[in-house]
Amino acid sequence: MPAKSSTIVTALTTAAVVAVGVLGYQAAASAPDTLTEARKDSHHSTPKKQPDRSGKKEKAPAPAPVPPASGKGQRIVYSLDAKRVWLVGAQEKVRRTFTVAPSTVSPPPGTYAVGSRSVSVTGSDGIAIEHVVRFATVGNVTIGFSAAVDGSRPTPDPSKKTGGIRESRDDGKAMWDFALQGTKVVVVS
């Protein structure tokens, strides 16, 4: 075969290999990864939401309603039974609601006021805490909302008298911004 023919055959072969490679790449990119899907299990995959075929947006669940016997006006409402807090602003609008981890000593139901605040201290359980909002004293135990700096919400040791009502760090920041000195705190059952 002459040299010119050999060069043409090589060029055509190279072009064919490139074309097959491109087509193979495109096919692989658009095909589902069945091997990866087969390896996923319920511990490592997140269930996919099915699209809402009605065209309506999915609604988030309604927040827990403010307890009816919690007063009026701007206030913090703390439900002992529900282990939940509501930050209620003007016109009875709930700015935020969240669950908390109660302390071993709880304040009796009633109306209190934020008496002191600390940006960061060590809690009575020895854990570094932030955004401390104190509002009551029961015996010699000070009661207040706080967030652990490490984000934990451990179950309090029942043999110790502690007054820290623990919330998440995000909730603690929201409480700190809302609960200025003198803000009303209503504790309900």
Rank of each mutant, 00 (worst) to 15 (best):
S159N: 09
A82G: 08
E130R: 15
S42M: 11
D81H: 13
Q26G: 14
T142N: 09
S189K: 13
G24I: 00
T122H: 03
A69L: 11
L80A: 12
P32I: 03
P2W: 01
K40E: 13
Q26S: 10
G21V: 13
V121T: 14
Q91N: 14
A147V: 00
A11Y: 02
L87T: 05
I129G: 04
L80G: 06
W86Y: 01
I127V: 15
G163S: 02
V132D: 04
T183I: 04
K40F: 11
S70M: 03
V119G: 06
A27Q: 10
R39W: 07
R39I: 09
V133C: 10
A16V: 13
L35F: 05
E58D: 11
E130K: 14
R134A: 13
K49D: 15
P51E: 04
P47C: 01
F135G: 04
S168L: 07
S6V: 10
Y78G: 01
M1S: 14
P158T: 12
V188P: 09
E167P: 00
P154M: 00
G55K: 06
K40R: 15
S124N: 07
K160M: 13
I129S: 03
A28K: 08
Q91P: 00
D81K: 15
R117W: 03
R166I: 03
G123S: 13
E167D: 08
N140A: 09
A148M: 06
E92W: 02
V88L: 01
R84N: 04
K184N: 00
A136L: 04
R117C: 03
W86A: 03
Y78I: 05
P65N: 10
M1E: 12
P68F: 07
G71I: 08
E92A: 07
T162L: 15
A27F: 08
T13D: 00
T111K: 10
P109W: 08
A128P: 12
V77C: 08
D41I: 05
I8G: 02
V149P: 01
A31K: 07
G126L: 06
P2G: 12
A148P: 09
V85Q: 02
S30Q: 11
V100C: 04
P109D: 10
G172V: 08
V100P: 00
D177H: 04
S6W: 05
A82E: 15
T7R: 12
V17P: 00
T13S: 05
P61V: 10
L12E: 13
P108I: 04
R84G: 05
T162E: 14
A136P: 05
E92C: 01
V20L: 14
P61M: 04
K161C: 09
S45Q: 06
R169M: 07
A148D: 15
S118E: 13
S42A: 15
Y25H: 14
G126K: 03
S45C: 02
S70I: 02
S30L: 07
V149T: 13
T99F: 02
V185H: 00
A82F: 02
A16I: 12
F145G: 11
K56S: 11
Q74I: 15
F135M: 05
G126V: 06
